[in-house]
Design a protein around this nucleic acid. Structure first.
Lengths: 85, 85
DNA sequence: CCCGATTTGTGCGTATGTATC
DNA sequence: AGATACATACGCACAAATCGG
């Protein structure tokens, strides 16, 4: 009832945190997460992806560096506004 | 009869106390609150904005640091005199 | 001088979220 | 991975100062 398709595969030759980041980036790209929307909390994402919280943190940090999200400590991480393509 | 446009939106990627501070700063900037005028009490502002008193306190503290208002304990918070532009 | 209403100041507890070690 | 720290946010309660009657 609660298993959806797995988000990451530890076996693949790609860092798990990168797989998580790509998963989230994919959701943004697909329009599932619109600019201004709040991303789920770290713990929730970790449970959903089946990885450790630290791994999610590493992934979100990457998204931040890519400018895809903005993090407000103690409030949450939000989808950034799209720069004019 | 009593609903005006909402002051804050907890969902937005901006701290609530910051939204409250900006709201008040906007009223000052718009000339609605003139120098020397008394700002509403914390609880009144909280009710108007639909936030907790502590959040208003945080907002007013910010306005104080910005030099926009002056607070006299047990008396009230007043709009500061404009520095020569 | 005292009383009561009002307002800011402060502390505690709870919840959630990120930051740090 | 786990534990601790820190910040936001809400809610409540009480203290202290002000001001009017």
């Amino acid at each position: 009832m609660d298993d959806q398709e797995p988000v990451v595969d530890p076996q693949r030759p790609v860092y798990v945190w990168q797989q998580v980041a790509d998963w989230i980036a994919g959701r943004i790209d697909a329009g599932e997460l619109l600019p201004g929307a709040r991303l789920e909390g770290e713990r929730e994402l970790a449970e959903r992806a089946g990885v450790a919280v630290g791994t999610v943190r590493r992934a979100v940090e990457d998204l931040r560096e890519r400018g895809l999200v903005v993090t407000l400590p103690a409030k949450g991480t939000y989808i950034a506004d799209r720069p004019n393509s």
